[in-house]
Design a protein around this nucleic acid. Structure first.
Lengths: 225, 225, 225, 225
DNA sequence: AATGAATGAGTTTTCATTCAT
DNA sequence: GATGAATGAAAACTCATTCAT
């Protein structure tokens, strides 16, 4: 009987090496040989286990998403016991937002992987699917906290207020993430740091809630001209 | 007899061809030969004029930025005569936002170029510089409209309210752009279309203004727990 | 406890799998891994039993030849009891010819194997040896029937008439086989089918006998100019 | 202006090198790099001009066929002036047969190429097409000489005698060619050499004509039992 | 100004083969 | 007996770049 069970070990090593290599090179132009070398094996073995370069990349993407998912779960667990069930809705939302700006997401390799991800999503169906998974998951997590907050608010259900706010938060998170990720050094008056970014999204949420509470129409205000 | 003045013509043709080819292929993996063929010349000539592939890409980026800038200027001109000087501040801001979601920015080649842009910005200094130019210009355009709106608002100057709102708008624009660009088909309950995206950013602006007018603190509300 | 007697079973399975795989792929580019997978074992085991890819191929060739030999023996047995001893000579020859055009020889995998065979025979001594074995066996089988027919024919012995006819039949069989094997669909006025091919060879035999009987010289007629 | 008109020169050199290399290696396993080196250029250039390995091989095949065609034309021209129009039919046929056994067809590289050809014809459509071209051309050349010989022969038209004889000659030529090509050294009683091979085919023709002249049925004699 | 010619260096991928278990 | 693990060597193919003309 040969050495057994190497496949998951090797695959994991390759995934880690892929992310590390992308981070080190800072670009998508990493070769299978580089990845394999970093993972301590021949490139032939990498092909053997994954079947091709694209598959390796997709596995790395899945890993990145899994890390992000873990970060979110950890943040939720932190709020009110491991279940997170009893957390107040707003705290849930803020936890999700905070997880998106967690340290771990800004390591250079992760940033590179995310940008790579966006590019791949244009042409590789599986990459697009994964991106959708991320977006849907984020949306669902946010909605879980948002819906209770809009209950009873007049017009909120009809206008889909919770959904719109979820999309707005998601977009803001993504936009701030890219700006943070690509901003080394100040970018204007004051640098946007991770904390301030989280604050900005939190404020977006708060304003939407207030607008609702005040009887205003949180969305569809219309352009003034 | 050398043909005179060919250089700008050739360069322009190559830039257009680059963007077109990126759009056609849907990815960054376009070769110089493909670009040159599309531009109706030999790849050797492309090298002659630009010196290398990276330079070609950067020129294309500059072109994309120039197009975006033109779109913004046109939108501003539309508001209150060609000078745009007299437009009411809010209209200015909305015009800038609208220009970001203009049709022309969503042609596939432009989307691909932008994503490419983000990736390049990680490693190529000139690309990073260009990205900064874009961000600063957007910020400046927004601030030009925002500052008057926050004048006299208590605490606005100290907290840098206008700047923060400008950054928030910028982030939201970027985040929504990527989501729109990569979303073919619905992405949840209702698809985010360009109009709705513009609306969401406009609402973000409006809420910030109201929060201020109402005596609230538009930013730095602080997390509620 | 080692399983005993596995070797012949495994080898046979590999030989069958080799032929099947060649047929399935329709070319010589089959890998050991493919063959082994089809045979239900690891490629390492295939190597263990055969020592190398070439050996596997040669074993497959031997199998093909054995099948052909069996086909011939069956045809001969069919004529006049299982011994075939008492069959009239001409019937023997026709039986041998018929066996060459038997259905089993035209299955795609067998065709591919034969063509592979010819190619290998150029460089691999053992393949050449096997090809000779086939040719000699065919020749001997034909001569066994031809010699009695030329006995007493004037000049036949001196000119080696029987041998020449045997060679002619062999060449015609090979030539028709290749044409049939590679001809899917009509190849001119009327398609050459297996029956017609057998007929043509039979006619060749008949004409040679008549030419002899008529006192003509069956061979060495000489070019007329 | 750069060096011009290299393409046909390079292509011709590659075709020649391909055939030479196949002959030298004696097998189909020649690499593009080997071919290119023999042709005195980089493998990249070979790819540039031909687009791929298969295309190179097909060009080589076409060349082999062209050489064969030239051989046939030369043989025909030899008979009765360059036009060959006035040659007696039988002489035409013998010339075609003779061309098939010309020296040039038995150089090792040509033999290897032909065998390769047969293998390729199984899977590569263009190779199959070329093989058909060869077969049809041979058939047409033979028929051009055969038809006059069967004119007025009772039953010849109905049974398609000329066509059948053409197919028989073609098959015999192919079969003898392969045997000759693979036979280095004696192969039985007496070696089949090129002259004897031609003789055998000539005799096949002669017998068919005599069978007809004698009032017999040249083909479709039927098996005697 | 312009380009066909040419290539070196590098990419992914394949595969027969070996080896420890 | 049997196999998963592992790889070196080599394959086809690509491409940015250079150069002579």
């Amino acid at each position: 009987m040969p050495k057994l069970g190497m496949e998951p070990i090797r695959k994991a090593a390759l995934v880690k090496a892929t992310i590390a290599e992308i981070g080190a090179v800072g670009s998508l132009d990493v070769t299978v040989a580089q990845i394999a070398r970093r993972a301590g094996m021949s490139s032939a073995l990498a092909h053997h286990y994954f079947g091709g370069k694209e598959q390796i990349f997709l596995a790395a993407m899945r890993h990145i998403l899994a890390l992000y998912g873990a970060e979110v779960r950890a943040a939720l667990a932190n709020i009110n016991g491991p279940s997170g069930r009893n957390a107040c809705p707003k705290a849930r939302i803020l936890a999700v937002i905070g997880a998106s700006f967690a340290d771990s997401n800004f390591r250079q390799e992760v940033v590179s992987a995310w940008l790579h991800f966006y590019v791949l999503a244009q042409t590789v169906p599986e990459a697009r699917r994964l991106l959708r998974v991320y977006q849907r998951r984020l949306r669902a997590n946010l909605l879980y906290g948002l819906r209770p907050l809009f209950v009873g608010m007049p017009g909120a259900a009809e206008t889909g207020a919770a959904e719109t706010v979820a999309d707005g938060i998601g977009a803001m998170v993504d936009g701030l993430y890219i700006r943070l990720a690509l901003a080394r050094g100040p970018m204007g008056l004051g640098p946007i740091d991770r904390v301030r970014a989280g604050q900005m999204v939190a404020d977006y949420l708060e304003m939407n809630l207030r607008a609702g509470c005040l009887g205003g129409v949180p969305l569809g205000l219309g352009r003034t001209h």
